[in-house]
Design a protein around this nucleic acid. Structure first.
Length: 566
RNA sequence: GCCCUCGUAGCUCAACGGAUAGAGCAGCGCUCUUCUAAGGCGCUGGUGCAGGUUCGAUUCCUGCCGAGGGCACCA
């Protein structure tokens, strides 16, 4: 609907004033200003110097004719806005579309065969999976779902940090302390890493030893490889546990080490194109507006800059993507600017888009969480706490007593607890920092996943009692009353929101929409009886059903479970 | 020092350059002999500072102040 009206307005402006309209159609904040509003007349007035109200009136006349099938009424308001009211019939038909579309309602066909690669989560091997990795993991998964739903081919790749000098540090510790790697779990590995940096502060020679060990690893030293492999296995065991809890998955998890044998070719290509310069024994790439990046270290080892270049090359050859999205923290912004700039210089960009969704950090009030200094919060601890709190809530409210099988309360607590945590993260605009505070993570009322899950279960409960196979059997109800209208005028926007959230790399837009939807439903629910309705019963059931469906589709896109009962 | 991001209510966050800046939490007061009270209804309260562009600025530009991040062999 938005597209039709937007096009009509554009066309009208073009025909009447021969101007290309830039201002988009919008949803006014005040519902008294209609379903859609256009500042077109204001824009035309700016360019032609004439009276905006006069222009608005002219546009109104034309549009009333062009849009007579869609629009009930057009009003001209104060400075020169055009406000549009959709026909009730159209809104009612949308309910039918929701029922028919079911789990696919809101899906789009924007992809046109294009492929998008999303690089997300990417925890570092040998370190605990910290709260800091929640953002990338959860936002990345939501973007993945959104693009798939929008009709793109999507490749999700978990670019594990399983290569680099950090392994030199681990190897150095394991060897010098003569430890048995078989007994090392991630907690112990991280301790080694923290110890290493503590020692390195006292004794700079430690860093050199670490670099030497990494070089050994990179040049295929058998012992180094064996230890490295053990460390990876131990880490993956923990990561898999967390991904299972979070309900997050990937198409691939190549990791940095996968590109080991692909780097020489890339290095050669960069050299051949004359982009490298020697500096203090290292090979660097310089940029006009950025600090230089290191391609090859002075000891001949690679950096993760080199690896990211090799990764791009591989991804292009393998999937020929139109877009590569990196869901990585904002502290790596410079790095990606350097990588993207180099890729462009190498001629790899060519019609391709590289995007760094630089999310803000989860940090303490005083600053960044630093693994090196041992300042981490284990995500697993946070998840367990979230589930424990959800369980308490479930028990306290005495929910879902009937048919509650033995494992059922566990399932509910997990879905609610994990959902609350994921939603907490997703509902924040990606680019802002999040201050870590235990209490804030576990909000289970108000703007939270449990509120949405509760609303969904509530709607489903009504529908179960209604026992109608097809609550949409109603046809031409009388006009929706005050109780139904706000909900009816909100549901149809879901597909627009799916598109906006994807286009802006902002799952939080979807959160905002769903929360508002739930609020509107709950107000409606409190104001109007559904099952015992004396009027508009079919319509109310249809609204209930549509709300449940949209909530489910939206939450699923966010990677949050819905439960039929809680 | 240079570069980047962010400053909105007591707290946590919304708001495509638009119309009376919205929520949630916290606080106070109502509300379950109607379908799930994890709910609903109401009250209290805000754009860091100074300029500029615009019919219109929380949004764009400049400067300042404050917070965070980054700046060569970590990732």
């Amino acid at each position: 609907m938005r597209i039709e009206i937007e096009d009509a307005v554009k066309k009208a402006v073009q025909e009447l004033y021969r101007l290309e309209l830039a201002s988009p159609l919008e949803h006014p904040k005040q519902e008294s200003f209609g379903d859609f509003a256009s500042p077109a007349a204001l824009e035309v007035a700016r360019q032609t110097g004439s009276d905006p109200l006069e222009i608005a009136s002219q546009l109104k006349l034309k549009l009333e004719d062009d849009l007579k099938d869609l629009i009930e009424e057009i009003q001209v308001e104060k400075p020169g806005f055009l406000n549009f009211w959709l026909k009730d019939q159209l809104l009612l038909e949308e309910l039918g579309r929701i029922a028919k579309g079911a789990d696919r309602y809101g899906s789009l066909d924007l992809g046109k065969g294009e492929t998008i690669i999303i690089d997300y989560s990417a925890p570092n091997i040998a370190k605990r999976f910290g709260i800091g990795h929640l953002r990338s993991t959860v936002i990345g998964q939501a973007l993945y779902n959104l693009y798939k739903f929008s009709g793109y081919k999507v490749v999700g790749d978990n670019h594990l940090g399983d290569w680099g000098t950090q392994f030199g540090a681990i190897l150095r510790q394991v060897k010098s302390k003569n430890l048995n790697v078989k007994n090392l779990n991630v907690d112990k590995l991280e301790e080694l890493y923290v110890d290493f940096h503590r020692e390195a502060e006292q004794n700079p020679k430690r860093m050199e030893e670490a670099r030497e060990w990494f070089l050994k690893l990179e040049s295929g030293d058998k012992e180094a490889r064996e230890i490295w492999q053990e460390v990876i296995d131990a880490s993956k065991k923990e990561f898999d546990r967390i991904y299972a809890l979070l309900g997050v998955g990937f198409d691939y998890a190549y990791g940095e080490s996968f590109y080991e044998d692909k780097m020489p070719e890339v290095i050669a290509e960069v050299r051949k194109k004359g982009l490298v310069k020697k500096s203090d024994g290292a090979e660097i790439i310089e940029f006009p507006n950025l600090p230089p990046a290191i391609l090859v270290k002075s000891d001949g080892a690679t950096t993760y800059f080199t690896r990211d270049l090799a990764t791009i090359k591989f991804r292009i050859e393998e999937w020929n993507p139109q877009t590569i999205i990196y869901e990585v923290g904002s502290d790596q912004k410079l790095h990606f600017q350097q990588v993207f700039e180099t890729a462009r210089k190498l001629g790899w960009a060519d019609g391709r888009e590289f995007v760094h969704v630089a999310h803000g950090l989860i940090r303490f009030a005083e600053g960044k969480l630093s693994t090196r200094r041992g300042q981490t919060v284990k995500l697993e601890d946070v998840l367990e706490e979230a589930i424990a709190r959800a369980k308490k809530l479930t028990t306290a409210s005495g929910g879902a007593p009937q048919n509650a099988g033995a494992g059922r309360n566990e399932d509910i607590a997990r879905a609610v607890g994990v959902g609350a945590l994921k939603y907490f993260d997703l509902s924040h605009q990606p680019q802002t920092d999040i201050i870590f505070e235990w209490e804030k993570l576990f909000l289970m009322e108000g703007n939270s996943a449990p509120y949405l899950q509760y609303t969904y279960a509530r709607a489903k409960s009504v529908l179960a009692k209604a026992k109608t196979d097809n609550p949409l059997a109603m046809s031409h109800e009388p006009l929706a009353s005050e109780a139904e209208a706000p909900l009816l005028r909100w549901l149809y926007r879901f597909p627009e929101v799916v598109q906006d959230a994807g286009r802006n790399y902002s799952p939080n837009l979807l959160c905002n929409y769903l929360f508002e939807l739930a609020q509107r439903f709950n107000s409606f629910y409190a104001a109007a009886p559904i099952l015992k309705a004396e009027e508009n019963k079919d319509l109310r059931l249809a609204l209930t059903s549509a709300t449940a469906q949209v909530l489910k589709n939206g939450l699923t896109l966010l990677g949050i479970e819905t439960l039929e009962r809680l």
